[in-house]
């Protein structure tokens, strides 16, 4: 077997199918999107080359920057919410009673499809028959907010649903990472007189810092390209109050049939994600590799 693996041709052969799929489904479409972004094209008929025209339009497009702002806001919220998830995971990993049950409960949203989650939250937020407003009325609020219709609230209302959707995922990741921290280290710290707070802060967190970095990247990039719940719950409305970059791109492609422009948006979105990922890697890079044992 080693002989086989030392032959470069055989390795290439093994990699080829996977690479072909990746190329056909990911890399080639990316290049094509970049190409369409340079065209004026309505999905039908002739394409017209307009150079960077779409990008110039994009830079000046207020609606795009508004949706970009919303996307970054979502990224910020997602990143901050990681702290909460980490706390929950620390508690769960601390051998409390019923931790296993709670872990499973937190994971449930991950098992639901986005559309089901959206329907669930639509029912919760319904202005007259929704659980939330019925509750508010019951405790004496006379005019409870119309969550998804008020342009000032709608964005945060949807964010809440999105954060809820991913909570279980991050808690699970942190939980698994924390469970991997050797208990010998914790015991040693305890013997040296460290309290639970110090154990968490000085022992556990540094040891899972690699995982934390990964989740930060996942949360931020995932937020920047986020689409599902926004699309189902509000469609980006009312009048763009909950629009994010991906839904704005979708709207231009499939509602306005402006495929050239939406390709430009899509390509720009990719660039933003790449730059942000690179930035995060750069900012969180550290030389001291903390290791177990």
């Amino acid at each position: 077997m080693n002989k086989v693996m030392s032959n470069k041709w055989i390795i290439a052969l093994y990699v080829l199918p996977g690479f072909m799929f990746l190329a056909v489904l990911v890399y080639i479409p990316i290049v094509l999107t970049g190409y369409y972004g340079l065209m004026e094209w309505h999905g039908l008929g002739e394409m017209k080359f307009i150079g960077l025209g779409n990008y110039i339009k994009l830079i000046k497009d207020e609606m795009f920057w508004k949706s970009a702002y919303h996307s970054f806001l979502l990224a910020l919220f997602s990143a901050l919410s990681l702290i909460g998830y980490l706390l929950v995971a620390l508690i769960l990993a601390g051998r409390i009673k019923g931790a296993d049950l709670f872990r499973k409960i937190y994971l449930i949203p991950m098992l639901l499809s986005s559309v089901a989650i959206a329907q669930l939250w639509l029912k919760i937020y319904h202005p007259t028959n929704g659980v939330l407003n019925l509750l508010l009325v019951a405790i004496g609020v006379e005019q409870p907010p119309t969550w998804l219709a008020d342009p000032k609230i709608v964005l945060y209302a949807v964010f809440l649903a999105i954060l809820w959707q991913y909570a279980g995922f991050y808690i699970l990741i942190y939980y698994a990472a924390l469970k991997n921290v050797p208990s010998a280290l914790e015991e040693a710290a305890r013997i040296d007189g460290a309290g639970p707070w110090q154990v968490a802060w000085k022992i556990k967190l540094p040891l899972i810092s690699g995982v934390i970095k990964v989740t930060v990247v996942l949360a931020i990039v995932g937020s920047l390209k986020y689409f599902d719940l926004i699309y189902v719950m509000t469609g980006g409305g009312p009048n763009g109050a909950s629009e994010v970059m991906a839904s704005y791109m979708y709207r231009h492609a499939f509602k306005s049939f402006d495929f050239g422009y939406s390709s430009a948006i899509g390509f720009f979105l990719l660039l933003i994600c790449l730059v942000v990922t690179w930035l995060i890697r750069k900012l969180t890079a550290s030389d001291d590799h903390v290791q177990y044992s």
Partner: peptide, 16 residues
């Protein structure tokens, strides 16, 4: 109009 109409889909309005 019913409350929160800008956040409701046509199907939700029909239900009302």
């Amino acid at each position: 109009f019913n409350r929160g109409f800008n956040g409701l889909s046509n199907d939700e309005a029909k239900a009302e």
